[in-house]
Nucleic acid binder design. Sequence first.
DNA 1: GATGTATTTAATAAGTCTATTAAAAACAGT
DNA 2: ACTGTTTTTAATAGACTTATTAAATACATC
Lengths: 205, 205
Amino acid sequence: MAKKNLESEIMLAAEKLFIEKGFEATSTTDITKMVGCNQALVNYYFRTKEKLFQKIFSQKLEHIWSFMTLESNKSISLFDFISRFINAYFEELTTNKKLPFFIINELVINQERRKFIREEIILSDKFQNYYTTLNNLVQAEVKKGTIRDIEPSDLLLHIISLTVFTFISLPLYEDFFLKDDVGVQNYVNDRKEEIIILIINGIRK
Amino acid sequence: MAKKNLESEIMLAAEKLFIEKGFEATSTTDITKMVGCNQALVNYYFRTKEKLFQKIFSQKLEHIWSFMTLESNKSISLFDFISRFINAYFEELTTNKKLPFFIINELVINQERRKFIREEIILSDKFQNYYTTLNNLVQAEVKKGTIRDIEPSDLLLHIISLTVFTFISLPLYEDFFLKDDVGVQNYVNDRKEEIIILIINGIRK
DNA sequence: GATGTATTTAATAAGTCTATTAAAAACAGT
DNA sequence: ACTGTTTTTAATAGACTTATTAAATACATC
């Protein structure tokens, strides 16, 4: 039996519900009902529902973002980067299937959160370094003549589009073709392999 | 001055707001405030907010879906299909930039709407024909040896992933890189060309 | 112009939601 | 065991929601 700590229990329940149903559709009553404590505790520990959300959101964002940059450092060549990155990305999202939708959704809906990301991530040194590293990898291959001349941003967008969309659309796949967990997992794995092939083939000369 | 017709004015306002902010975040008061009429009219014309939403949702879905099938019939070869389809798809979504997010969002959130799609679209003859046509196009090219052996579903998913994600993430691009309408349009056009190249290159042998 | 129907409004019921407040309970340290 | 602090609860204010109702207005047809 874990030590009872309502603050973190509320965080966990909120995380689950926010990711499942989004900010609007989740009430503080839902959250505390899940924990089994009084609704006022949300305000006691986090002041407002919005602040609780922000805490969870930036936590999740930091998680996924630090994961992304971590993966890029390990790579030596571009093709290595691509397949390694997509593999790790898929593995990461497989254990957090709803995360892509959660993040995209809130970023699209809420302009404030976009500004937050811009300042915290896009303008950060870490991102600039990350992008420069990727750019070097790409330029090296272009010079060698192994790939066509492509913007690193396009490459990155291809990877993110195809990976993220796979997980966003997962509930659709599940219900359209009546698949169980195993079926879904097979589908995800197949998509992963196919996406790697498409991208590597697609940038080759 | 158009003939005043509050029923359709409500529909239009609701369409705008639902697409902009989603079902939950839009209130019937918002909608009628926009039109400038009494809130009770929503219930008078559409019985419930949910029914109003459903009407708009299936209208939009029908629009995009009939567009997709229309485009497939015009194509003769696979490469023709791909570039023609992506071009038309992008053009369509350029005039309805928020539509992809709207549809995906509601489908992910609401299982009932997924079931609706399954019955109305996936299981329809029209879809089955559509898929068979695509399959024939793909098989023909595989036999000719011009492309690698790929599932038509994968090809379709590639196209949809890359196209839809471009528009879903548009607000992010806009705010991250501080682009105006012209900048955004250039970006969209560049992405379109790049996506066509990636896919055609990516399925070639 | 009277009469029946369709449209629109104002008022409001009944529910939900978040945040606040004051009191109660649990837990320290002495 | 007493005292001060932290945690938790119950109760509730106040602001929204959607949907319903009955009354008012506009419209059409005879």
